[in-house]
Amino acid sequence: MFEVLKEMLVSKLKVTPSSVVPDATRDDIDLDSLAVVELSMVLEKELGLAISDDELLEAATVGDMARLMEERSTAA
C-alpha cells in the first residue's frame, strides 16, 4: 500500500518522489492541510477508500498513512 500511496502523492500531488519514504512526516514532504484534503479526495476517487482529512492529519508519517489505507481496504 505504501507504493500505491507514493504513486498518488507523486502523480496527483506533485510531491518529489525521493522525499516519499515511510518515515517522512507531512512537513518532510511539504504536504500542508489543503494538500491532505486533496489526498483524501484522491484516495476516495481513485481507490474507493473513505479516509477523512482529519484521520490523515493524525497520521504522523507517510508509513502511518499507508497503514491507515491498509486497515480501511481490508475493512471494506
Binding site: 492541510s33 489543503l34 491532505v36 484534503v37 486533496e38 483524501s40 479526495m41 482529512d53
Partner: peptide
C-alpha cells in the same frame, strides 16, 4: 474553514 471549504468548492 479552509479544509472543508476546499472539498466542497471542488
Amino acid at each position: 474553514a479552509g479544509r472543508e471549504v476546499y472539498r466542497h468548492a471542488v
